[in-house]
Design a protein around this nucleic acid. Structure first.
Lengths: 370, 370
DNA sequence: TTGTATGCGTTATCAC
DNA sequence: GTGATAACGCATACAA
């Protein structure tokens, strides 16, 4: 089941088989079909290691566009990308980085820039669903796979998306909250911005699942904090004053610190509890004093790692990509908190800023295990 | 940083570098040292893909000894092994299987048999800590790596163990139970056999963590079911009669069905809830009727997959193995139950029975993602 | 339109 | 002890 073997069976040369298999033209329909038929029958699969070896000297360039805000989250994605890079140290891969400052800033100019940099694949955390569609269509035309991380824009022509199902996240949080609270007390959601599809989905799924289990007919208040510290603190503080029976808050975004602070400021420290999102060092004290009871960890590190793996597989091994890769979220309690990398690690973002990270260093474990 | 480059720098031939790097003898100390020094300076790492290509025609044989009882659990391990096998389809790997019928049966004769089969690595689910030590020492002497799955025997000379920290499992279950029950009601543990180190560890950790959080001073009853259906059903039934304030049961072994049945038989259906271990089809109804509130999933599939990956890495890439690989358990609720493979899949054990599974079929995604 | 030659980095088999 | 040389499977530049 190798090219030489096919060549022998078809009584042609290696080059001919190669042309048939890879649609390179300069081949007659007849021989092409004969060869393809034989390859089919033999169940030919190209040997990725041999291919890797053969094309190993080329430079590959991968474009990266991931906003810089919310360090705890996006830095993890970047770390994941770097991690995976080490698994490809035999190749000459360069990451070309161009990222907007704020989460809500336009990615247009950045992606446009990246597409001019002779990249072979593009990894983006998209913001607005619409703005990139034109650029992505042109990338597709140029044969450049575009991989979305963390959120999707279904209308776009992106090749693949690597993310966590937001409905699933909401349902898990809702079920957990219902079990934690039993029948007593009501709950609320703090989210970023309901115009964001993922945020809305999480909030809705949470509320639905909570009511389903807790048999609770009360309205579940939804607070938009816009990932702003002050705004969130104020809104949650007033919510706590208005709703004395509030017992649980699901913070569907990374911005849970002002929520915890508000709870303590209102003297509700052991009365109101939080289910949060992600995990980073500032949260640890609130885990320890039992303000946070659980957090839903989206594994940003793994999102990044997998996105780069897909990009490089597509480029190096010509592997066709599926349109969607769903990553499983993890439920984190105080007992397994120590297993999350972001709990302790300092930000390394500096290394990434607007640089071309050339590579080729020490190979490393992929360490899903830990 | 390749062998030819080192050869040029050292002004020797490829063969000489090879002999220096791999301690093949037939080389003078002097040139050996010179070459090793240069390789060190250049940070030489052998290119695994090239190596793979070069040794691709050899046969490799991996011995497997995993008991057949408890299909839901051990079959998953086997499935994981087969999964990983597909990622190495370019090689000629054969799995040599010899497994005891019962979990508690001796593995001695099986392992002894496997060691005579010209295997290059051995994967075992050990039972008794002692019985294999002599065989394992001799395997070590013969340069055959021995990888334990799922439980450890610290005194033995095994190369590596791939497992889930039993203390961690117990603490997670304990914390979850404490959160679920709040301050009300007491709890109990159903386990297999307290002479088994992992089982004891899980039970103890559970009890300690539960008390810590729930501020509960009551004794936490521990029931040994010996993974026997009848015995477990009887013991749990009588426990439920004796302890009317019992609210939660942690089943630390896969044997949770008789526990659920006993709860229903005693008319405690919505009063007593279960945190279980693993997930398989028979459990689904009890998840749906809210008898089971959560389960701790040890990811047996991944245990198997990773064990084979380590074995093949050790053999094919000469990669040194760490002594312990800790896999993270997952907390499963009704909301994310559908993500667990074992929930639905039928047993495929037949394929494995006492056969030499020769291979080389279709390569496949590794799909941690799903 | 087809065939041949060369190289990727490693291992293995010779001959010297 | 050491150095050529071929082979693994694939890609590619060049020759026919």
């Amino acid at each position: 089941m190798s090219i030489p073997r096919i060549a022998k069976l078809a009584k042609v040369s290696l080059g001919t088989v190669d042309r048939a298999l890879h649609n390179r033209g300069r081949i007659s329909e007849e021989t092409r079909n004969k060869i393809l038929r034989i390859a089919e029958e033999l169940g030919y699969q190209t040997n990725p290691r041999a291919r890797a070896l053969a094309i190993g000297k080329r430079q590959f360039r991968i474009g990266i566009c991931i906003p810089r805000e919310m360090h705890q989250y996006f830095d993890s994605i970047h770390d994941g990308i770097e991690n995976e890079l080490k698994n490809f140290s035999e190749f000459r891969v360069a990451l070309v980085n161009s990222s907007p400052r704020q989460t809500r800033d336009s990615r247009y100019e950045h992606v446009a820039y990246l597409l001019q940099q002779d990249i072979q694949a593009l990894i983006v955390c998209p913001g607005d669903a619409q703005e990139l569609s034109e650029l992505i269509a042109s990338a597709k035309g140029a044969g450049i796979p575009v991989i979305f991380i963390s959120s999707d824009a279904p209308a776009s022509q992106r090749t693949s998306v690597v993310w966590v199902d937001p409905g699933l996240i909401g349902r898990i949080a809702g079920e957990l909250m219902a079990r934690f609270l039993g029948q007593r007390g009501r709950t609320a959601v703090v989210t970023g911005d309901l115009t964001n599809l993922s945020h809305r989905k999480r909030a809705e799924s949470f509320a639905r699942r909570f009511k389903e289990i807790a048999n609770n007919r009360q309205r579940c208040e939804i607070v938009e904090g816009h990932d702003d510290y002050e705004e969130t603190f104020e809104k949650v503080s007033s919510l706590l004053r208005q709703q004395p029976t509030l017992r649980g808050i699901y913070v569907a975004t990374a911005n849970c610190i002002p929520v915890c602070k508000a709870i303590h400021a209102q003297g509700k420290a052991n009365k109101v509890h939080v289910i949060a999102t992600h995990l980073f060092p500032e949260m640890v004290p609130y885990f320890e004093n039992q303000t946070i009871w659980a957090t839903i960890y989206h594994r940003p590190n793994w999102l990044g790692q997998y996105a780069l793996r897909l990009a490089l597989r597509s480029v190096l091994e010509k592997k066709p990509l599926r349109s969607s890769y769903l990553v499983q979220p993890q439920i984190i309690l105080a007992s397994n908190m120590h297993l999350v990398r972001e709990r302790a690690k300092a930000s390394r973002r500096a290394r990434f800023d607007d640089t071309v990270t050339a590579l080729g260093a020490d190979p490393v474990d992929e360490d899903d295990v830990a």
